[in-house]
Structures are given as structure tokens and as C-alpha cells.
């Protein structure tokens, strides 16, 4: 008989701390991917603006709207809408995006690992090739990149030192291990100022 499907966290323990740096599994949020149909982007943005006061960011960044909605550019011509658990995001988006975009529930497909603390950039820089300098990758920035060999959506949520790695759930344990090892390796001397 097959094992029953049991809800389990994507990584355990859900938070680890090394030398003042913390790596924690983010609370699960409702996530819906939005893929606009051809030539529908203006109408879609108008609909989102009227309902949530936010439009799909044209660059790789995250914007916030009403009711805790966040819109992140997640790929070429694809965006993620996030809202806290229980927000009923899909039910709100379906009538709004009818005929304008393909919607897919991504809530269980990705998880976000949050690296927080002084030196988070130096640790992340061991794994990702993008320039994390504050003037280049400031609060609200997002980048599609690789962390080691694992595709991630990297983002800097706000001004507190830290980065979020959003990753396919099936890669979460590998990525968690890689970041944990990078944390234990410490801050490179070249990054100490």
C-alpha cells in the first residue's frame, strides 16, 4: 500500500542560525502565477490597478497593493501574485483576469527560504552570480538566477539585511543545505570591510 500523503514542511528544521545569520522557511503564502494573453497586458494592468491598486512590474521587482497583495515578475512574461494564507487570492483573481491571462495556483509549487542577518549578502554571493551591491540590487529587487546549480527567484524584500530565495519545492532541501554550508563557511575575508 502506498504511503499516505501527509503535509510536511519542505525543510526541517524550519529555522537554523549560524554566527548570527538565520535561514528560515517562510510562512506559506497563497501564490498564483499570471501569464497575460497576447496584447492583454494593458487591460490586465487596468483591472489589477482598479482592484488592488498595483500593476505588474515591468522590470524584475516586486510591488505591493491593497489587501497584502504582492506582484513579482517571475519570468519572461510571467508574474507571481502573493497573498497571505487564507486570502482567497485565486477566487479574487479569476473574475478579474478572465479572458486576459492564464492563472495557475503555485501555492505548493514553490517555497521561500529567508536568509537574514549581517553578512547575508556575502554568504549569498558564494552561490549566486548576480551583483548584490545595494545600488544595483536594492530593496524590492528581484532576479532570476542560479544558486549553485539550482534555479531561484532571488529577491531583497526590504532594507533589513537579507535575501529571499524562492525555489521549486522539490529543490528546497538541496538549496537549504547549500545555503547552510555557505553560512557555516563564514564571511570571506574579501567581504570584510
Amino acid at each position: 500500500m502506498p504511503d499516505p500523503l501527509l503535509p510536511k514542511p519542505a525543510v526541517q528544521p524550519s529555522s537554523v542560525t549560524v554566527n548570527g545569520l538565520t535561514l528560515a522557511l517562510a510562512q506559506t503564502r497563497e501564490t498564483v502565477s499570471i501569464g497575460p494573453f497576447a496584447k492583454c497586458l494593458p487591460d490586465l494592468n487596468a483591472a489589477l490597478a482598479s482592484a488592488f491598486g498595483a500593476t505588474l512590474p515591468a522590470d524584475f521587482s516586486t510591488t505591493s497593493g491593497h489587501d497584502g497583495l504582492q506582484l513579482t515578475r517571475a519570468a519572461h512574461h510571467q508574474w507571481f501574485a502573493h497573498a497571505q494564507a487564507g486570502a482567497g487570492l485565486m477566487a479574487r483573481l479569476v473574475p478579474l483576469c478572465a479572458g486576459l491571462a492564464a492563472l495557475t495556483n503555485q501555492t505548493d509549487s514553490r517555497v521561500t527560504l529567508c536568509l537574514r542577518g549581517t553578512g547575508a549578502d556575502a554568504v549569498a554571493a558564494k552561490l549566486v552570480p548576480v551583483d548584490l551591491a545595494p545600488d544595483h540590487f536594492g530593496p524590492g529587487s528581484t532576479a532570476l538566477t542560479l544558486a549553485g546549480h539550482i534555479p531561484v527567484i532571488l529577491s531583497r524584500p526590504d532594507v533589513t539585511p537579507g535575501l529571499d530565495f524562492t525555489v521549486f519545492r522539490s529543490f528546497a532541501r538541496s538549496l537549504h543545505h547549500d545555503i547552510h554550508v555557505a553560512m557555516k563557511g563564514g564571511i570571506p575575508n574579501s567581504e570584510r570591510v
Binding site: 524584475f60 519572461h76 552570480p129 548576480v130 532576479a143 532570476l144 538566477t145 542560479l146
Partner: peptide, 11 residues
């Protein structure tokens, strides 16, 4: 045009 300036190794 999507990601900004990136190094050659990514392509």
C-alpha cells in the same frame, strides 16, 4: 532585455 546586464557565463 529581461534581466539586465549579466556575465557571459550565464548564456
Amino acid at each position: 532585455p529581461h534581466c539586465g546586464e549579466r556575465s557571459l557565463e550565464e548564456f
